[in-house]
Design a binder for these strands. Sequence first.
DNA 1: GGAGTGACAGGAATGGGCGCCGAC
DNA 2: GTCGGCGCCCATTCCTGTCACTCC
Length: 673
Amino acid sequence: MQLDHCISPSMMLSKKFLSVNSSYPHPGASEHALHEHPISTSDNLERSSPLKKTTRGMTNQSDPDNFPDSKEAPGDGQRSKLSPVLDGVSEIRHNFDGSAADRYLLPQSSQSQSSAAPTTMFPYPSQHGAAHPAFSIGSPSRYMAHHPVITNGAYNSLLGNSSPGTGYPGTGYPYTQQYGHSYQGAPFYQFSTAQPGLVPGKAQVYLCNRPLWLKFHRHQTEMIITKQGRRMFPFLSFNISGLDPTQHYNIFVDVILADPNHWRFQGGKWVPCGKADTNVQGNRVYMHPDSPNTGAHWMRQEISFGKMKLTNNKGASNNNGQMVVLQSLHKYQPRLHVVEVNEDGTEDTSQPGRVQTFTFPETQFIAVTAYQNTDITQLKIDHNPFAKGFRDNYDTIYTGCDLDRLTPSPNDSPRSQIVPGARYSMASSFLQDQFVSNYAKSRFHPPGSMPGPGTDRSVPHTNGLLSPQQVEDPGAPSPQRWFVTPANNRLDFTAASAYDAATDFAGNAATLLSYAAAGVKALPLPTAGCAGRPLGYYSDPTGWGARSPPQYCTKTGSVLSCWAPGTRVGSSNPYLSGTDDAETLAADRSPLGEDTKPKDLSDTSWIETPPSIKSMDSSDSGIYEQAKRRRLSPSDPAVSGSSSPLKSEVLPSRDCEKNCAKDLGYYGFYTHT
DNA sequence: GGAGTGACAGGAATGGGCGCCGAC
DNA sequence: GTCGGCGCCCATTCCTGTCACTCC
């Protein structure tokens, strides 16, 4: 979805056009919306994952992967790049439903605001909104008040409202969500379209590792905050389009309170417990280290915030630009801001609509000093490469018993319930998923059909990330085989919405890609960037300026249909076909035409390959490594079991390709073809 | 009792030092 | 013989979750 309208600050301030319902997603409504969509409630992993796990309160499971970022952390100096002139500047605040919009295009007729909105909808359009009070603050935190939403300000007047139905005070918490499910939907659209005089926005933003975020979001994402600062995981990573390639922009993230509550983890769930402390001092803004930079720069690669750190040290903001000061047990909502600036980095307030804000509901999280939900802990361990040391032994732990176990068995030893690692006996499989989505095979292949234990498992996941040359010649050495290549990223939108089956893989791919961009500074290719839209980049060597057209989606009832100009509208869409059979999906998607075949990216004009690109091999080098730490009791069948079903779930190269295609297919949803 | 803190161990990335090899 | 490229080794640094302890 695109930015629909632009509202003058005065108008936004005076009209409080954000209705209660619009700015305050009704929990029930959002819940419904989420459940209505296969993504949120019918995750294949949760339904069929063989993983066993016990938690204090939840028993969901998930799986993809991610990796850290590479951008240099911004220093205070970078912050200083921002001129303190945004106050009063017309801003475009783009609200959007990240959960839905990225999956289907709401028919114009179905949206009250659609009458004024462009029909073109992108996964993550910018939000239309009033100026944030944050933007009236001087550098480095002039963009953000300590509690922008709660504190008084123009923004609050727009977003704030008292909604009896929401249960939240009228201070305005537009991002309030029920953890684990629910997204704001209509409110944002209404917000952006109901106002006359709004002008179309410019930018579209994609949350690159959204599947991973969703996985965490289902359990209510928790982010550790420490005195010295802790990186986010998943970290924020975006792809942006629609910017003026020659114009300069500052891009930064701020973190605001998502609701007015203080939260506590009780009985296995997060429950509100008192009021949030709104009087917290400290930096809430993280300026992307590349800021300011041209639109071309921002659009050509993934914009990662992997080095952003969260801390509860209120003094950290004074000397560390990487730090975002938060309070434990408070729920926060990160937001992405795109601010048009002059070439020298100063902002020009003479023109309206130079600030765009993007919010992704699934990135909401609760700050904690220690993980509360073991599901979150396990997800972190499973997906964060830095936590590799906490992953369990894939080969020895996994057992057939666990394979079919979706929920903790009464026979689970207390130990296994206490020790997170014991709950996920297939941690290593996640590692595989991280790179090749092997998990798909484990779920869709009958045990008997799986390759034998002796199969070389390295082939599949390697292939899944082969460079173009390697795709042709797997034997060819490549220090960059880590990268997801155009071939892998090629997308068939007709199957792109196979979220239920693909979300895991997509998450892996997205994570992988995100890490590529994060861990490898200036990842050379969009391939390595957000998997959300690689195809368009690759297919067109002319660069961002000739980006492929966006994908369009429509939703009829519960059926999602996505396509891109020039591509087939598919019957292979799992939603359309009503199947989540991975094989079918893969088969449907496998005959990707030459038109989607990647070209040699080395020629693309937008590619800037830094010499320091590191191989990501290291990331997958431990896929099958033996865990050194065990958390299973000796009596655990997982330990005694000699044969692991998963162990033999080796993906042949062919299968891998299918799965990869599947992953990519999902991401294709975000991409332009 | 719950939240916060710091030490700890494990994995991985990074960079410097060193040796080997081939070209000039 | 010199130089540059390359690969390997190792120390350092960073990041992670865990755990014991302290604080309120």
